[in-house]
């Protein structure tokens, strides 16, 4: 009994040793700012005068008296709901393509990664050009097939799809993660499948996807965490317009906190978002039975 206890203690200590640096990092660099923004969420704070405690007022106003908040919330859910699955699918497809053994693959791989490293300003200018109603490349292609393209960023109905289209361009990070995950699939599995007569599609469905499901899971969880906080693209391309059609959560938070100097209100918004993302993440871990870990859990 005593022996078992000391063994348990030893494992605990070894575990803490391994995670020590990052736990210290959380305490040094994250916990302080998190706690202070949590406190501010219950305050009236304009950055210039000291914060004044007002209880749940911010949360009450946000949830019951703020129409733009609900607009931003719905827009963000729309963005996340459409872009996350599309990006995941596209990234996986590109990774499979980039995983073939053919000549010149290094060049192709690099080109697909370029939009992810190209400077933000260049990307912003290119985006607005691509989506330009009269000269943009997308409408030119649609025109070629006899379709009259929409006004994209100028049209409340099409502005969000336009932004999602741009988001599809920047799947480089997810592609790299999939690509490195594909390398972890032992080649023996494929050889066995080929002997059994499995074609390309079946091979991927039954071997690749289960074996890299931990990587899928990572891209899904991170994809949801990050797209709920989408900001740069929207800020540069539409700044929330037209008619609030693309106002997203963090965009609204930013306006409240820095344009209107309502830091307390902004912090309350941030913590509501934190709660939403945390719940979704916990749910994904709770229902992650589909993720296959070679070494068990």
């Amino acid at each position: 009994m005593k022996l078992l206890k000391s063994k348990k203690l030893r494992i605990n200590l070894i575990g803490y040793g391994f995670v020590l640096l990052s736990v210290l990092g959380i305490f040094f660099f994250n916990l302080g700012p998190m706690i202070s923004s949590f406190y501010l969420a219950f305050c009236n704070y304009d950055i210039i005068t000291p914060p004044k405690f007002i209880g749940l007022t911010n949360f009450y106003s946000i949830l019951f008296n703020d129409k733009i908040f609900w607009r931003a919330f719905v827009n963000t859910v729309y963005y996340v709901g459409v872009s996350v699955p599309l990006r995941l699918f596209l990234a996986f497809l590109i990774a499979i393509l980039l995983n073939q053994k053919i000549r010149g693959m290094g060049i192709y791989r690099t080109i697909f990664y370029l939009p992810t490293v190209t400077s933000g300003v260049a990307m912003a200018l290119i985006w607005t050009w691509v989506l330009n109603p009269s000269f943009g490349i997308i409408n030119m292609v649609l025109n070629f097939f006899g379709i009259q393209g929409p006004a994209w960023l100028g049209d409340p109905k099409w502005a969000m799809p336009g932004i999602i289209l741009v988001a599809l361009w920047q799947v480089g990070t997810q592609v790299v993660i999939f690509l490195s995950g594909l390398q972890n699939v032992p080649i023996q599995f494929y050889e066995a499948a080929e002997i059994d007569g499995a074609g390309g599609f079946k091979k991927h469905l039954f071997i690749t996807i289960p074996l890299i499901s931990p990587i899928f899971f990572f891209n899904l969880v991170i994809g949801i965490i990050q797209s709920f906080q989408v900001f740069d693209k929207v800020y540069i391309m539409t700044a929330g317009g037209p008619a609030n059609a693309t106002i997203v959560y963090v965009m609204y938070l930013y306006e409240k906190a820095f344009t209107w100097l309502q830091m307390g209100y902004g912090s309350a918004l941030a913590w509501i978002l934190f709660f939403i993302i945390m719940m979704l993440t916990l749910l994904q871990f709770r229902f992650s039975k589909w993720v296959y870990y070679e070494g068990g859990r």
């Binding site: 070894i14 575990g15 391994f18 700012p33 202070s36 991170i222 830091m263 978002l273």
Partner: peptide
């Protein structure tokens, strides 16, 4: 390593990605 409190620490770690930097940058 199955140490005590592992899951809580792990979700705390993931939590550091969930608060927009707009509200943490000033305290930082």
């Amino acid at each position: 390593i199955p140490f005590k409190g592992r899951d809580i620490l792990f979700f705390l770690l993931l939590g550091t990605m969930m608060l927009p930097s707009q509200v943490t940058i000033i305290p930082l």
